[in-house]
């Protein structure tokens, strides 16, 4: 072994530790931790924690985008979503008659925040939240999140994920414009044509990209 002097390696290491220690008094970037409850680091745009339901407009019950198609319930890997479809169609935020979920529960003690429900949703109705202080003193009921707690406004979504929300808004706006143009064309050719849910399904194909 080619060690010139016993203890030299240790001294070299000690010097390194000392340099870091002294450096932390001089340079702020050497302090890598933050004092958590007082100080918080900003979250990344892509940050995700449990999902929530997006609603348009002011009334969460009326404006839910979810149409209870049960795709997320089926695709959820740990099976933490429970949906009961309503029996009657109700008008949504745009006035169109839609099915709505009567019950929409997410068991956050089971949910693993994998975002697959968001990816498979063809209606942009379920999105990932960034909330992380979710401790509760009720082990069972407290972690079961109901529809009313899950519903959050589109404004909240825009605030949490600005870039992603802008993309979704643009896509939904384009779909709506296309649907209106189609309805207008249909109305001009055949006056009593009903609106079809085709544009919403078209989004399903593009939700992946």
């Amino acid at each position: 072994m080619s060690v010139p002097m016993l203890g030299q390696g240790i001294l070299k290491g000690m010097a390194e530790t000392a340099r870091n220690f002294v450096g932390s008094y001089v340079k702020d970037e050497r302090l890598v931790t933050v004092q958590y409850p007082e100080e918080r680091r900003p979250q990344a745009e892509a940050a995700r924690n449990f999902p929530f339901l997006v609603y348009d407009g002011d009334d969460w019950q009326k404006g839910l985008r979810c149409v209870a198609c049960l795709i997320c319930e089926k695709e959820c890997p740990p099976q933490c979503i429970y949906i009961v479809k309503d029996t009657v169609r109700k008008p949504d935020a745009t006035g169109k008659l839609q099915f709505q979920p009567k019950t929409f529960d997410i068991d956050t003690s089971v949910c693993m925040s994998c975002q697959i429900c968001v990816e498979v949703c063809p209606f942009d109705a379920i999105k990932m939240d960034v909330e992380y202080e979710l401790s509760t003193c009720n082990r069972f009921g407290g972690l079961l999140v109901r529809k009313e707690q899950l519903a959050k406004s589109n404004d909240y979504y825009r605030k949490m994920h600005p870039v992603e929300a802008a993309g979704v808004d643009a896509r939904l706006g384009a779909d709506k414009a296309r649907a209106e143009a189609k309805a207008k064309a249909a109305a001009s050719s055949k006056p009593a044509a009903g609106s079809s849910p085709a544009p919403a399904l078209a989004t399903a194909e593009r939700v992946n990209s």
Binding site: V32, A44, A46, A47, R48, S113
Partner: peptide, 30 residues
């Protein structure tokens, strides 16, 4: 931690990334 910050801004999670998909990746680089 600096590398995990990169993962978080790309995939949304520090450790449970769930990023690759069959035939590509889930989302483009931010």
């Amino acid at each position: 931690e600096t590398i995990l910050d990169l993962f978080e801004s790309l995939t949304g999670a520090r450790m449970m990334c769930n990023y690759m998909r069959f035939g590509g990746c889930r989302c483009d680089l931010p």
